[in-house]
Amino acid sequence: MSAVPHPLAPAVRVWPALRAVYVAQLSRARVARIPLLFVATFQSIGIMVLMRGVVDGGSGDEARAVVAGSAVLVVAFVALNLLAQYFGQLRAGGGIDHYATLPVPAAAVALGTAAAYASFTVPGVIVTAVSGALLYQLPLGGLWVLLAVIPLAGAALAGLGAALGLLAPRAELATLCGQLGMSAALLLGVLPAARLPEPVRWLRELLPSTYGVEALAEVLRPGPDWGVVLVNLAVCAGVGVLALALATWAYRRAAVSRPA
């Protein structure tokens, strides 16, 4: 059109873009997802009440596993299941075009959305963990570790959920994968590892939420071994980075390859 190229508008850097996506997604979650957060929380509390019938109170392995597993399940419900659905629908409906024609890094959209969904789980996880600790007479003193467990397990599960949603060839498959992932987090998180058969225990090791559950279960013990907590959180962080990298790659792939 002209001899001198028109100056390009500035590309938006990762952080401001991530913040804008995060703020928008969090507000959208506030409007549309609060009923689902209630469902997630009540589901976890319901599981704990149900299990209370067969598991004794006090800090035995089973009681700690049930409470830690139920608390992290809230994260799995929102960050993995709902995010997989969200990205599955966004991709299928062509909504990704909106972001793909804005000068923002792919990472900002994938990470901002994942972070918003993970943050959104905070009240549900805290309510579940506190009521579980009271129900099973576990010490509440170590629950501040949730401040690390929620973002780290949130990163791992949200990354996985986003990747599933973006990679699934159809929106229905994304929903199915999200549901299956959540069921896995439920069964493998709530039951104590020692009770599971060997192959299932392997599967449990592969699930990103497991390390968050282990860290939380450890601090529910009187006199927790902080080394174990730290190692589990570190693994969780490592898995989180991998999952988010996968989500970013999946987003970039979805943004350029969607047929009209």
């Binding site: 959208r28 409007v31 549309a32 409906g93 075009d97 909106h98 972001y99």
Partner: peptide
């Protein structure tokens, strides 16, 4: 574009 999916909520 023709879709508003990204903004709907």
């Amino acid at each position: 574009g023709q879709e508003s999916g990204a903004l709907d909520e």
